[in-house]
Design a protein around this nucleic acid. Structure first.
Length: 888
RNA sequence: GGGCGGGUAGCUCAGUUGGGAGAGCAUCGGCCUUACAAGCCGAGGGUCACAGGUUCAAGCCCUGUUCCGCCUACCA
C-alpha cells in the first residue's frame, strides 16, 4: 500500500513546501518560556535587510538549524531567535538609489519623509531574506522576529548609549576619522578595507625662504600639501644637523611652514623628510598634536578641494593630484616620481577611497570594555571553537582603539544627545528633555548623527529577548548556548557583543562561539558579484533539493577550512537523498506496522550486526554534533546508511523479507528494519529535515512530526562485537567471491559453486548458518566447507583470514588470468610482510614499543605468512595445471 | 612589517592525544540481479610540498626552505 505512495525517485519540491508549512502551522519552532527542560538558545546573526541570501548565510543558517533541531530531538527547550539589522549605510544607499530613479534626492524630501520612505521600502522588500531563510528549512521561532529599529531594541540602544556616556565610556571629540565622500559619513576602522594600489612616491622640493635648495620630501599624496603645516625630520638625522633656517616655503603657495624635529620620522625612508598634514593623516594628526601645529583642512566632505587649496579649490581630490603634479613639474619642484605600491583604505560598502579627515564624532572608549571581554574567554566563561580563533580575538581586543560610532546619515538610531543653542550645554538622555537644565531654554537641538549599525547589533543577544525589561525569555534563555558565525565578523560583532553583554548583563552573551568557514567558489576564490562566480543557494535548492544542499554544506563544514562549493558536490549528496528514499521505499514494501520493541528471541547475524553498528553510529553522531564536527556526523551517516544498511544489511535480509527463511525470520527482520530505519531518520533529521519528515509520515507506527521524536540513546547491550566479527567473515567471503567474478570477467548470469577450506569454527558456523545469504549475495548455486588438503579440480582461489576459497571453474577457468590475479595478490602480501618483518627484526622496537603494539604486529605477521603460504600453494597448483594443459 | 591557515589519489578534501594512508567525485572493466541506472559489482591510482631533526616508530612533534590563501599594520 505504501509503495503506491512512494515515487521511484525522490522529488523534493512539493515535499519541502508541504512540510515547512506544516511545521509553521503546528508551531513546532516555537520556543517555550515556562518549561523545566534545559534551555538551548541561539540568536541568529541578523542578516542585513537589504541582503539577498548568499552562500555564507546558507552555511551559517544550516549549521544553526542542525544544532537547534538536534537539541529539540534531545528534549531541550530551544529558542532560535531570528531577525534582521537595519544596515544603516547600505539601506540608505538602496533607498536613495531608488529615489534617484524617481528623480528625488533625500535632501529634497527632508529627513522625516526620507525615513518614512525607508520604512515603506522595508515593508515591501525587507522580508525577502527571511523567506529565503525559510526556504533553507530554518526552524527559527518566527513569531519572535526582531529588527534592530524596533521600538524595544531602539530603547535598548538609547539606554546603553546614555549609561555609557554617564560612565565616561562614550565621549565626543575632534579626531581624525575615516571619511567616505560617497556615503558622506564617518566610518569605524573596521569598516575600512585596505588594498594595495599601484601609485607613485613623489619627491617634492620644499625650498628655503631664500629660494635655495631646501628640503626634499617624499609623499604619496601631493594634493594634500596645501594642508601641510610643517615639515618633519628626525632630530638625529646627520643630513639635517646644520640647517641654515627653520622654515621652508610650501610649494605652489607663498606660505612658510616650520621645520620640526620628531622621532616618528624614519631616517631610512624616502628622503628622511616628512610633510605634516594634521587634518588629513592620522600620524600627522598625532605629530601635530605633539608640536601644537594648526590643523588645516583642504578637502571638504564631498571630496573637493576647498578654499585653502588656492587656485585648485573646487577640484576633485584625484584631479587635483594630477594638476598639482603638473604644476610642480612646471615649477621644477618635482624631483622624482617613483613607482610605488602601497595600501589604501576603501569604504567597505561602496569601495570609494576613504579620506582621513578631521571631524567631530562620538566614540566608545573601548579599552575598559575590552579587558572584560578578554578575561571572559581566558577564564572559559565563553569558549571559542575552533580554539585557533581565540588568538585573533585576543590580538584584536588587546590592541583595540576607540570605536567611532557616529554616522552622518539619516537611517539609524539618532543619537540621544541635545545641545542648548543658548548656553551650548550638552544633554544626553533617554528622552528629549523639555528644556535646558542649565538655562531653561526650551528649544533644544538634537544631535543629527545616528549610531553605527553595529552598535545596536552589539546588544542583539539581550535586546532581542526584551532587555531592558526583565522578561521570562531573558531568564530562561540568556546567556545563549552558542553563537554561530563566520570569522569575518569576529571583531565587528562577536567581540562587541561580548563587551556589551558583560557590561550590561553581567554575564557573557554566549557559552560557545562556533566560528565556521567562509564559502568560496570551487577554485577557492571569494564569491563576488563582480567576479561573476556567485552560486545562488536558492538555485541550488531548486535544482538539487534543499536537503541535498544542506547535507553538502554540513559535510564540507570541516573546522578551520574554507568551504569550496560546486554544484557537482551537491549532486553527489542528492544521490544520497535518493538512496535513502529508495531504501525507505524498499523497507515499506515489507514493513506494515510499527514495533514498540525489538524481539526477545535471538536474532540473526545481519540483524544483530546492524543493530550493533547502529549503536556505534548513534554514539559517533551524538559526539560529533555535541562538538560541532558537522562533517563527521554527515559522513558517518552517509557511510552507515549507504554502505552498511543498504549495501549489506538490506541485501543480506532479502531472503528473510521474501519469507524464504520462514515466518519468524521475516517478522524479526521486519521489526529490525523498522527500528534501524526509524533511528536513521531521526539521526539524519537535523541535517536533512524534509525527506526525513516525509518518510517518517509514511513509516507505520509513527505519529506527528519527526521533530517531536526522541533522539536515540546508545543501547550498550545492543553492541555485539561477536556479531561484528562474524559479519566481517560473511562480508569477506562475499567480497572475495565477487572479486573473483570481477577479475575473471565472469558474467553475473553464471552461477558459481564454492568450496571453503577452513578449520576455523567461526567460519564454519557462518557458512552453515548463513550460507543462503552468501549464496544470494555472491550468486552461488552451492556453498560448502571442507577440510584443508582436499583438492578441488581446476578452480579460482581466494585467500581470506583462516580460509581458502575455491571456485571450481572447469572448462571456464582462464589459467593465465588466474595466475596473474594470484601473483598480484602475492605481491601485495610480500610488501606488507616485508614491512612487518623489518619491524619484528628490530630489537629496539621489541624493547621499547608497548606490548599491545608488538602483539598486533605479530598477529599480523602470522596472518600474512599464512596467506602467503596458501597463495604460493595455489600458484604452484595453477602452474601445474597450466603445465599439464599447455605441455602435455 | 606582524600573525594565522594550508600543500595528502586526476579533482575536492577527511585523517582528535605518533603505531595498519582514507572518503566522495572522476577514471577503467562488468551488469537493467524483482528498493534504487540519481543504481549494482569489481579494479586501478598517493616519496602525505621539500630538506633536516626527535623517536623503536612521523601525514601527525621540532627546525629550516618553498609555494598558495587569508587576516592585520600609521612608516610618508
Amino acid at each position: 500500500m505504501a509503495l503506491n505512495q512512494l515515487e521511484k525517485g525522490y522529488e523534493p519540491h512539493e515535499v519541502e513546501k508541504k512540510w515547512y508549512d506544516f511545521w509553521e502551522e503546528n508551531e513546532l519552532f516555537a520556543a517555550p518560556e515556562n518549561t523545566a527542560e534545559p534551555a538551548y538558545s541561539i540568536v541568529i546573526p541578523p542578516p542585513n535587510v537589504t541582503g539577498v541570501l548568499h552562500m555564507g548565510h546558507a552555511l551559517n543558517i544550516t549549521l544553526q538549524d542542525i544544532l537547534c533541531r538536534y537539541r529539540r530531538l534531545k528534549g531541550d527547550s530551544v529558542l532560535w531567535m531570528p531577525g534582521t539589522d537595519h544596515a544603516g549605510i547600505a539601506t540608505q544607499n538602496v533607498v536613495e538609489k531608488k529615489l534617484a530613479s524617481e528623480g528625488v534626492s533625500r535632501h529634497q524630501l527632508g529627513r522625516e519623509k526620507f525615513i518614512e520612505a525607508v520604512w515603506a521600502w522595508r515593508e515591501e522588500s525587507g522580508s525577502a531574506i527571511i523567506n529565503q531563510l525559510k526556504r533553507l528549512g530554518a526552524s527559527c521561532d518566527w513569531k519572535r522576529e526582531r529588527f534592530t529599529m524596533d521600538s524595544g531594541l531602539s530603547e535598548a540602544v538609547r539606554k546603553v548609549f546614555v549609561q555609557l556616556y554617564h560612565e565616561g565610556l562614550i565621549y565626543r571629540g575632534d579626531y581624525i576619522i575615516n571619511w567616505c565622500h560617497r556615503c558622506h559619513t564617518a566610518l569605524s576602522d573596521l569598516e575600512v578595507e585596505h588594498e594595495d594600489v599601484d601609485s607613485f612616491l613623489y619627491h617634492i622640493r620644499y625650498p628655503f625662504p631664500d629660494r635655495s635648495d631646501g628640503l626634499l620630501i617624499a609623499t604619496t599624496r601631493p594634493e594634500t600639501l596645501f594642508g601641510d603645516t610643517a615639515v618633519a625630520i628626525h632630530p638625529d638625522d646627520p643630513r639635517y644637523q646644520n640647517l641654515p633656517v627653520n622654515e621652508v616655503m610650501l610649494p605652489l603657495t607663498d606660505r612658510r611652514i616650520p621645520i620640526i624635529r620628531d622621532t616618528y620620522v624614519g631616517m631610512e625612508f624616502g628622503t628622511g623628510a616628512l610633510k605634516v598634514t594634521p587634518a588629513h593623516d592620522p600620524n600627522d594628526f598625532e605629530i601635530g598634536g605633539r608640536h601644537g601645529l594648526p590643523r588645516l583642512k583642504v578637502i571638504d566632505d564631498t571630496g573637493q578641494m576647498n578654499g585653502a587649496a588656492g587656485q585648485f579649490s573646487g577640484m576633485d581630490r584625484s584631479a587635483c593630484r594630477q594638476a598639482v603634479v603638473e604644476a610642480l613639474k612646471k615649477n621644477g619642484l618635482l624631483e622624482k616620481m617613483e613607482p610605488y605600491r602601497h595600501s589604501v583604505g576603501h569604504c567597505y560598502r561602496c569601495k570609494t577611497i576613504v579620506e582621513p579627515n578631521l571631524s567631530k564624532q562620538w566614540f566608545v572608549k573601548a579599552k575598559p570594555l575590552a579587558e572584560k571581554a578578554i578575561a571572559a574567554v581566558q577564564d572559559g566563561q565563553t569558549r571559542i571553537v575552533p580554539e585557533i580563533w581565540a588568538k585573533n580575538y585576543f590580538d584584536w581586543l588587546n590592541n583595540i582603539r576607540d570605536w567611532c560610532i557616529s554616522r552622518q546619515i539619516w537611517w539609524g538610531h539618532q543619537i540621544p544627545a541635545w545641545t542648548c543653542p543658548d548656553c551650548n550645554h550638552l544633554i544626553v538622555a533617554m528622552n528629549a528633555p523639555a528644556c535646558c537644565p542649565h538655562c531653561a531654554q526650551p528649544n533644544l537641538i538634537q544631535e543629527t548623527d545616528v549610531l553605527d549599525t553595529w552598535f545596536s547589533s552589539a546588544l542583539w543577544p539581550f535586546s532581542t529577548m526584551g532587555w531592558p525589561n526583565d522578561t521570562p525569555l531573558l531568564k530562561k534563555y540568556y546567556p545563549t548556548s552558542v553563537l554561530v558565525t563566520g570569522f569575518d565578523i569576529l571583531f565587528f560583532w562577536v567581540a562587541r557583543m561580548m563587551m556589551m553583554g558583560i557590561h550590561f548583563m553581567n554575564m557573557v552573551p554566549f557559552r560557545d562561539v562556533y566560528v565556521h568557514a567562509l564559502v568560496r567558489d570551487e577554485f577557492g576564490k571569494k564569491m563576488s558579484k563582480s567576479k561573476g562566480n556567485v552560486i545562488d543557494p536558492l538555485t541550488i535548492c531548486d535544482q538539487y533539493g534543499t536537503d541535498a544542499f544542506r547535507l553538502t554544506l554540513a559535510a564540507f563544514a570541516a573546522q578551520g577550512r574554507d568551504v569550496k562549493m560546486s554544484e557537482k558536490r551537491v549532486e553527489g549528496y542528492r544521490h544520497f537523498i535518493n538512496k535513502l528514499w529508495n531504501a525507505a521505499r524498499f523497507a515499506l514494501m515489507h514493513v506494515d506496522k510499527g514495533y514498540a520493541s525489538l524481539p526477545d528471541q535471538p536474532l540473526s547475524l545481519p540483524n544483530r550486526w546492524i543493530l550493533s553498528r547502529s549503536q556505534t553510529v548513534t554514539r559517533t553522531v551524538t559526539n560529533a554534533l555535541d562538538n560541532y564536527h558537522f562533517n563527521e556526523a554527515a559522513s558517518q551517516l552517509y557511510q552507515f546508511v549507504w554502505h552498511e544498511f543498504c549495501d549489506w544489511h538490506l541485501e543480506a535480509v532479502k531472503s528473510d523479507l521474501y519469507e524464504k527463511e520462514g515466518e519468524q525470520a521475516r517478522n524479526d527482520t521486519r521489526c529490525v528494519v523498522w527500528h534501524v530505519l526509524k533511528n536513521i531518520l531521526i539521526l539524519l533529521h537535523p541535517m536533512i529535515p524534509f525527506v526525513t519528515e516525509e518518510i517518517w509520515h509514511m513509516l507505520p507506527g509513527t505519529s506527528g512530526s519527526i521533530m517531536r521524536a526522541e533522539f536515540p540513546d546508545v543501547q550498550e547491550n545492543r553492541i555485539d562485537l561477536d556479531a561484528e566479527r562474524h559479519m566481517a567473515i560473511l562480508i569477506d567471503i562475499t567480497t572475495a567471491l565477487r572479486n573473483i567474478r570481477g577479475e575473471m570477467n565472469l558474467p553475473p548470469s553464471l552461477v558459481l559453486k564454492c568450496q571453503i577450506q577452513t578449520l576455523d569454527e567461526r567460519i564454519v558456523t557462518v557458512v552453515q548458518e548463513y550460507g543462503n545469504q552468501i549464496q544470494n549475495l555472491a550468486r552461488l548455486e552451492s556453498l560448502m566447507t571442507c577440510n584443508p588438503g582436499e583438492k578441488p579440480p581446476a578452480c579460482a582461489t581466494a585467500i581470506i583470514e583462516n580460509a581458502v576459497i575455491h571456485v571450481p571453474l572447469e572448462g571456464v577457468l582462464n589459467v593465465d588470468q588466474e595466475l596473474l590475479r594470484l601473483e598480484k595478490e602475492l605481491k601485495k602480501i610480500n610488501t606488507d610482510l616485508d614491512a612487518v618483518i623489518r619491524k619484528l627484526n628490530n630489537e629496539d622496537f621489541l624493547g621499547k614499543a608497548p606490548d599491545d603494539v608488538i602483539e598486533k604486529v605479530k598477529s599480523k605477521q602470522f596472518a600474512l605468512v599464512e596467506k602467503h603460504a596458501k597463495l604460493q600453494a595455489n600458484i604452484s597448483k595453477i602452474q601445474s595445471i597450466h603445465g599439464a594443459g599447455a605441455h602435455p
